[in-house]
């Protein structure tokens, strides 16, 4: 089943743009719930977004260097 992963709100910070810094996994690879799915950076901080589900990464919708906001579709998992 296809599952759309959207960028979650990070704690209490107001929505701000972040940049996709690094995808630690490739399309076709399996990721477990809670493992690092993608790493983002803001001006002076880098943080990782945990995978909300266990599944296979089908498609990276955003690429390294793209700007993203809370709620944006970032990837599709097959769960």
């Amino acid at each position: 089943m296809k599952f759309e992963v959207r960028l979650p709100a990070m704690g209490e910070d107001a929505t701000e743009e972040a940049t996709v810094a690094y995808w630690p996994i490739e399309e076709g690879e399996v990721i477990h719930e809670g493992d690092d799915l993608v790493e983002l950076t803001t001006d002076k901080a880098a943080f990782s977004v945990p995978s909300p589900k266990t599944g296979t990464l089908v498609e990276k919708v955003v690429e390294e260097g793209d700007e993203v906001e809370v709620g944006d579709l970032i990837c599709i998992l097959d769960v």
Binding site: M10, G11, E12, D13, E16, T42, K44, A45, F47
Partner: peptide, 13 residues
């Protein structure tokens, strides 16, 4: 462990 303070990157910086 920021959960003991605030879950805010901006506040931490």
């Amino acid at each position: 462990d920021l959960s003991q303070w605030r879950l805010s990157i901006r506040w931490y910086l």
